[in-house]
Write a protein that binds this DNA or RNA. Structure first.
Lengths: 134, 134
DNA sequence: GTGGATGCAAACTCTTTGCACCTTG
DNA sequence: CAAGGTGCAAAGAGTTTGCATCCAC
């Protein structure tokens, strides 16, 4: 599963051009600019294989449909670089953050062992900060 | 929408007896001990009204189906007390945490405004800390 | 007795799968 | 030319809704 089809290239381009975590329908819309016949199931299948190849990461935010972002969108080339996300309450877009407060071991009562953590921030992105877009 | 039906009582009891955040099917299973005819759609409807009455909170963890916990399971009686959750990687149970690191505004680049945050910790609960249960 | 609640089944949304056709290597 | 990929449509999982019946007040 790594044939270089127009569809595969369109999906990769879309995810990279997006510059942020995209939902499958968002990827479809972007990728259709290159390949109008593109189908949602192809998106899902490519998402699957691209994840296996570690070229894409699934971004899960509480209560939201899964999104996907390219692995090498950041400064560090190492796959799966630890980071968190910001969700804009207005435009519903998701942005990657590069800061992390570090260990959360002090948040838990005695006896619990923290192995990992996820932080999601919600608020307004720069674009939506002004301009009272509902 | 606050009639005291057997079904409503069974759902409330189930959620309180659970002692932790439960999924709709888990609530159904527990509540059926009292009312065997109980239907999943009734669970969902009661979940809805109990949330409106602030007797239940929806607990959303990244990539997990929604769970629900009673509002007054904690020390503070005030509804909707801000808290976070710990997910045990071994037994898959979810525990409430009462600590919070506070504002996360310093995690975001300039221009972003943080209005709220969610933190999910993953690891091992005291019970699963030893005893190599898969 | 009346209006809200329930149970069942159908509708919906999101994702996955089966299958015939098409394309890459 | 063969293996794998694509598009379409149908199947699944989880949640919601329409509707006739039932029951708490």
């Amino acid at each position: 599963m790594e044939r270089n089809t127009r569809q595969r290239q369109a999906v990769l381009d879309a995810v990279e051009r997006g510059g942020r975590a995209l939902t499958p329908p968002e990827i479809l819309a972007l990728a259709r600019e290159a390949v109008p016949s593109l189908n949602l199931s192809t998106i899902y299948r490519q998402i699957g294989t691209l994840q296996e190849e570690a070229r894409l990461v699934k971004v899960l935010l509480p209560g939201q449909t899964p999104r996907y972002e390219p692995v090498c969108g950041q400064v560090h080339g190492d796959a799966g670089h630890h980071h968190h996300h910001f969700h804009c309450n207005v435009c519903d877009r998701v942005f990657s953050l590069h800061a992390c407060p570090g260990s959360m071991q002090d948040l838990v009562p005695k006896g619990f062992v923290v192995e990992s953590h996820e932080i999601t921030l919600h608020g307004r992105c720069p674009e939506c900060r002004r301009g009272a877009r509902a």
